[in-house]
Amino acid sequence: MGRQLSFLLALWKTNLLSAMEYRVSFLTQVVGMMLNNALYFVFWIIFFARFEEINGWDLVDMLFLFGVVATGFGAGTYLFGNAIRLSSLIAEGLMDYYLSLPRPVLLHALASRSNASSAGDFTYGLFSFGAAIYFSGSFNGLMLLRFALGCLAAMAVLVSFLVLVQSLTFWIGNTSLLTASAFNAIVTFSLYPITLFDGTAKLVLFTLIPAAFIGALPAEFVRKFDLLQLVQICAGGAIFLLLAVFVFYRGLCRYESGSAIQVRM
C-alpha cells in the first residue's frame, strides 16, 4: 500500500513538473476554467434572483453543490487524467506500455496524465465552498471534514464510472461516442438539484448514471450531517470503485496489443 502510494506521488510530481515546463499555458487553462465555471454559475444567480427556490433548493444549496462537484471532478480528472481517455488507450493498443511494467496497470494508466484545466475546476470548487460557507453563515471543523469526505467520494464515483464505461472498449471496440455521452450525462445531471427529478429518474441517477453520488448527495451531506447519507456516500464510492476495478481487469484479459512502436516523452 505504502509502495503504491509513493509510486502515485512520484507520478503526480512528474506530471506537475511537466506542466510547469509550460507555465503560461498551465496558468491560462487554470484561470480560464475558473472563469468558465463562474460564468456558468451566473445562470443560477439569475435563476434564483427571479424564482427564489425550486423544490426546497436555493442559491446557497447550489453553491455547496458546485463546490463539491467542481472539487471532486477537478481532483479526479487532475490526479487521474487518463480517466477521460482510457477508451482510446485501449482501442489504440496503448496499454502495452503499462502492461510491461511491474506496477498496477489501472492505477499507472490513470495517473500517468494530468489535465491542467482540472486544476482550475478544483480551485473553483474551493472558492464555491468558501462562498457557500459565507452566505449560509454556518461553519465548523466538522463541515470541513464532511466536505473533504464528500469530495473524495464524488471523485471515487466519477473516476470509477468513467473506467466502467470505457472498459466496455475491451468487448465492443470503439466506445468514443458512448464515452462522450456518458461523460456529458454524469456531469450535466450532477450540476442540477436532485429534487427536480421524480422516482424513476432518481433511481437512474443512483445507479445507471450515478450523478447523485457526485453532486446532490454529498452536497446535502456537507451542509448537514446525516448518518444515512454518510453510509450511502461511503457505500456508493466503495461499490463503484470495486466494480470498476473488477470490470477493467476482466476486460484486460481480452486486450489485444497493437504491437505498435510507442514513444513516451
Binding site: S25, T28, Q29, V31, G32, L35, N36, L39, S117
Partner: peptide, 13 residues
C-alpha cells in the same frame, strides 16, 4: 498566444 482553450470555454459560456 500559446493556449486558446480558455478563450473557447469562455465564448461558449
Amino acid at each position: 498566444v500559446e493556449e486558446t482553450n480558455a478563450f473557447r470555454w469562455i465564448y461558449q459560456k
